[in-house]
């Protein structure tokens, strides 16, 4: 259910093939402004493809993807991309730049006005990495990279936040900081679409849950419709259905 007035993200009969493999088939979905959507599904269900399509990193082979009503393949796509904060499987960070230099670079790329150095310092403090601000990213652990990538994705205050397994590599303190950041995003009215294999941890922040299986929408409903065990069972059933992806 949308909690805001407008539609933040829309898939219109969207499909994506990689050769003979159908990663996403004819998906039609709207996510309202300010809504939080949790995306679940077994491995190979098409979750990451869905999120990459929403970020404009992958082109649909059929249908459309719209962010704030703007087609990501259209001439105004730059305006839509400015509204997106995406955290994928990789950090998108420059390994030979420092943590602070990375955040400053991305702030410039997203057209953030004002003192980008001060913004970077604020975010480094927020993610608990102020002490390594001047260290190059190359030597960072997986968890540190994930924290910095999270700051990279959120510092420009995107209206649409797309997170693919954001807890990957995070220790308990990192997960607590992530939870606080997600609460902050929701409080400022951002729309969230998040993939997680940990339904029990992500469910409390979700308005709706989308279950994908073999590139198709297997279920879509209010998060409160089931408890975490219920959603997990639904995903497991989808994963073991005849012909389900390994």
């Amino acid at each position: 259910m949308s909690t805001g007035a407008g539609v933040a993200l829309e898939f219109r009969s969207t499909g994506r093939r990689f050769g003979a493999v159908v990663a996403l088939a004819d998906a039609t979905l709207t996510v309202g402004a300010g809504e939080a959507l949790l995306i679940l599904g077994p491995n190979g269900a098409g979750k990451s493809t869905l999120l990459r399509l929403a970020a404009g990193l992958t082109r649909p082979t059929s249908g459309q993807v719209l962010v704030d009503g703007i087609d990501l393949r259209g001439t105004r796509a730059g305006r839509a991309r400015a509204a997106i904060g995406f955290l994928g499987h990789r950090s998108f960070l420059y390994e030979h730049l420092t943590a602070k230099e990375n955040l400053e670079l991305y702030a410039h790329l997203y057209g953030v006005a004002g003192d980008t150095g001060a913004l970077a310092e604020r975010w480094l403090a927020k993610i608990g990495m102020a002490r390594v601000a001047q260290r190059t990213v190359r030597g960072f652990s997986r968890g540190m990279m994930q924290r910095l990538a999270l700051a990279r994705a959120l510092q420009h205050e995107p209206r649409l936040v797309l997170l693919d397994e954001p807890t990957t590599g995070l220790d308990p303190e990192g997960r607590a900081r992530l939870d606080a950041l997600l609460d902050e995003q929701r409080a400022r009215g951002a729309t969230l679409a998040m993939i997680s294999h940990r339904a029990e941890a992500a469910l409390p922040r979700a308005d709706r849950v989308l279950v994908l299986n073999r590139g198709r929408i297997a279920a879509l409903g209010p998060a409160a419709e089931r408890d975490a065990a219920g959603w997990t069972a639904l995903v497991a059933a989808a994963g073991t259905a005849p012909g389900a992806a390994a």
Binding site: A55, L57, G78, R81, A82, S91, F92, Y106, L109, R152
Partner: peptide
């Protein structure tokens, strides 16, 4: 994957 980061940006 810096390239992807650039493509993601506006």
């Amino acid at each position: 994957e810096r390239w992807q980061g650039l493509l993601l940006s506006p």
